[in-house]
Design a protein around this nucleic acid. Structure first.
Lengths: 90, 90
DNA sequence: AAAGACTTGACAAATTTTGGACAATTTAAG
DNA sequence: CTTAAATTGTCCAAAATTTGTCAAGTCTTT
């Protein structure tokens, strides 16, 4: 979800994978995977991306975290219940 | 949260740490930590515990998962927003 | 056919997480 | 005081996850 979002931003700004990768100081192949949710963005990347694309950091961070969460619960039963329970205990 | 719950069950059933640890085939020191949320129960432990204390597996599993979730998001901003977003994307 | 943009898979390296063991200490009860 | 129960701290090994890098591949455009 953060991946697709970044990709959309990148494309609508006519930025090449290779260019954005350079700004994030990572391999282009890696960024390609990140945008397709095959790998994860690092926490620090989010700040850089927010600046580059002038997005509210909060939005990107929330998406990034949500991804992280979904990753840890994937393939478990009662995911929704657990998420609700988690919210109640934050 | 699963920890405190197990502890409550254990005590109300007059079971000693050492005894429950034996049933779970783990070190008593470890179980002590687990009940105090210093360490985590393994996924398999949940099934055993549900049987031992005759609890609905779903309840324990949900708590266990919620703990796991909270662990991954702890110390991050926008946790609630992320959890909500995660729910919407399950 | 050549070039540019992106994807894919495989592999090694690095890092993190986890688990278990033990000894020492503390707490509570008798 | 003595014993039993539980906690704490630390160390270590194994396992699991994450990362980075590369070479080769696809697809599209010129």
């Amino acid at each position: 979800m953060i991946g697709e979002h970044i990709r959309a931003l990148r494309e609508s700004n006519d930025v090449l994978l290779r260019q954005l990768a350079a700004q994030l100081e990572i391999d282009q192949a890696m960024l390609s995977k990140m945008e397709r949710s095959e790998r994860s963005f690092k926490r620090e990347h989010i700040d850089v991306l927010a600046k580059i694309f002038k997005q509210p950091k909060k939005d990107l961070l929330t998406m990034w975290l949500a991804d992280k969460i979904l990753k840890t619960v994937k393939s478990e039963k009662f995911t929704k219940e657990a998420l609700r329970l988690a919210i109640d205990n934050v």
